[in-house]
Design a protein around this nucleic acid. Structure first.
Lengths: 179, 179
DNA sequence: CTGATCTTTGAGTGTCCATTCTAATTTGAG
DNA sequence: CTCAAATTAGAATGGACACTCAAAGATCAG
């Protein structure tokens, strides 16, 4: 994969996979569908990726890391974190859908994705916990509980936002911060 | 299906389907797997159910209605509703997993299940809204928003409870009621 | 006991899937 | 321009899937 053509094809495959995952989940993401959307033949696909699983994992990794962009910042507030998440879900709906569909469904049914998701979830809780401690103080234990509540709530919100187009995510998130 | 043998076989098929859905989602729920677990041959399966889809839908319907047992009661409180949900998730983990897995995977990818789920979600919000109005008053609009927030949060909690065995659902739900 | 009806069996069907293979074509460094 | 390496095409393979079918067996009302 050192020629320009290969690099471009690889990008088209990833774009198609992302789109298919967001639209119809793993079930709709067949190699044939990817090839159709990327306008290539299976031979090209397998010249650039060793398996379908590898493309899917690549896109899922991308989606998971997009949930928490940038490293932890020692001055970020809880509101910053919540707003960053809301912005992610509303401005990158395709990747957000991939995250919810594949991460959550895969997390529930596939061990590898499940572990990866749990690790990611714990690091998110940790980041929220630090922000809560900086902002409102209290015991570490109490902050941890608050953080878990916040993260779980946000995930629930995102799911409903994807399921129900009328769900007003920004407003609900704002209300969440008031309490 | 008027003979005893048929009725018993039907029950075994449903039990196997429930278990497989809870364990590995739709992907793991193949007709072959159902037949193995129920110790029957495909012919028997198709004598009692017209298709795999029909069994899955039967189990999903069962799971959806199990989330809100009993009709709306004009004296139920918000705490009652929250506790009923927590009890459902903790005491019927198999069916709860079916609800979450199919809700997320099917709801996002399959139109029929998605619509059914959206309707169910709206009736749940309605039930919460009424309880909130009775209890704390306020405008209908505000109560609706509060209700949506509660339902979304509870769904997020249930997901994390299924994903992370350490997540303390009853305690988090209790804390949710305090605020 | 009998026989109409229900149930079960298990091999078989067609379809779709991920993946492989060989040969042809395109690329770009020297 | 040359040629080794990268890329592509597209038919072919094997396996898993949902589902069918004809024949054998079990059930139970009368």
């Amino acid at each position: 994969m050192t020629y320009r053509a290969g690099i471009a094809t690889r990008a088209r495959i990833l774009r198609a996979t992302r789109s298919l995952l967001a639209e119809g989940g793993l079930e709709a993401t067949t190699v044939k569908a990817i090839c159709n959307m990327a306008d290539i033949r299976p031979g090209s696909f397998y010249n650039l990726f060793p398996s379908k699983e590898e493309v899917v994992l690549t896109v899922v990794r991308e989606a998971i890391s997009a949930v928490d962009p940038g490293g932890p910042d020692s001055s970020e507030t809880v509101a910053d974190l919540v707003q960053a998440y809301v912005r992610f879900v509303t401005s990158e709906p395709v990747i957000a859908r991939v995250y919810l569909i594949v991460a959550v469904t895969g997390g529930l049914t596939d061990r590898n994705i499940g572990k990866r998701l749990l690790r990611h979830h714990q690091s998110r809780v940790e980041r929220f916990r630090r922000a809560i401690l900086r902002e409102t103080g209290g015991s570490t234990r109490r902050a941890e509980e608050k953080a878990e509540l916040l993260v779980a709530t946000l995930t629930g919100f995102a799911m409903h936002a994807v399921l129900n187009p009328d769900f007003d995510l920004p407003k609900q998130a704002e209300r969440l911060l008031e309490d």
